[in-house]
């Protein structure tokens, strides 16, 4: 079927593409608003249990992961700066580093999760059922929220990989780089959400 009904030339609207992306990021924040609200409500009810459970999380891994994501945000920003100057190769390198850092973050997360799961602390696990009420909710929220965030990291890596292909193919270039810019924006969002999650789950007292 030929699509003569389609609009002939899709005009480029840079500001529109950016606005749409910002609105989308807003909805992502709304998505994490729910679990964080639940967290605050439960924290008010079970302060001791939440403190105890929070102590058991590995702060070192959490802190390392925060640094990793912050660095990756920087490299994502640098990839945009490079394409603006027309340096395609440098752009690709920075995207590659960003994706790799995302991968390292996920590996850390995986180790952290499997550590807990090995001790039976996961929804449905033996130790989980024995936990005092508040702590169970803490871990429930921990797995849910970091899991949801992990899915966003994966999504971000896929988006970056796609933009890398587009950059290599010349579709993203010095004059038209809004796709890469939006991908980087998304990556910053993933980073910012983690910066909220980290103190909530690892540092409260």
């Amino acid at each position: 079927m030929n699509e003569t009904v389609e609009k002939v030339a899709s005009h480029r609207d840079y500001a529109g593409a950016k606005l749409g992306m910002w609105l989308f990021l807003l909805t992502e924040l709304g998505l994490f608003f729910g679990p964080l609200l639940l967290y605050v409500m439960h924290d008010i009810r079970h302060p001791e249990a939440f403190h105890a459970a929070s102590q058991s999380l590995d702060k070192t891994i959490g802190f390392a992961n925060t640094l990793i994501l912050l660095t990756s945000s920087l490299t994502a920003a640098l990839s945009v700066a490079s394409i603006r100057r027309g340096k395609t190769e440098l752009t690709l390198i920075f995207i590659f580093v960003t994706i790799t850092l995302g991968g390292i973050f996920l590996v850390n997360k995986y180790l952290e999760w499997t550590g807990k799961i090995a001790h039976g602390i996961y929804p449905g696990g033996d130790a989980f059922a024995e936990l005092p009420p508040g702590e169970a909710v803490f871990y429930g929220l921990y797995f849910f929220t970091t899991g949801l965030h992990g899915l966003h990291v994966i999504a971000g890596m896929i988006v970056l990989a796609v933009t890398a292909t587009l950059t290599a193919g010349g579709i993203v270039n010095k004059r038209d780089f809004v796709k890469l810019e939006n991908a980087a924006l998304y990556w910053h969002l993933v980073d910012i959400i983690w910066i909220f999650l980290f103190p909530f789950f690892y540092l409260i007292s």
Binding site: M41, R45, H46, Y122, P123, A136, V137, Y139, G140, F144
Partner: peptide, 16 residues
């Protein structure tokens, strides 16, 4: 999975 946030038995709260 039974994460417990809405389940009073695990300290959750269905009102939330």
């Amino acid at each position: 999975f039974g994460i417990g946030v809405f389940d009073p038995a695990k300290g959750g709260d269905p009102i939330l």
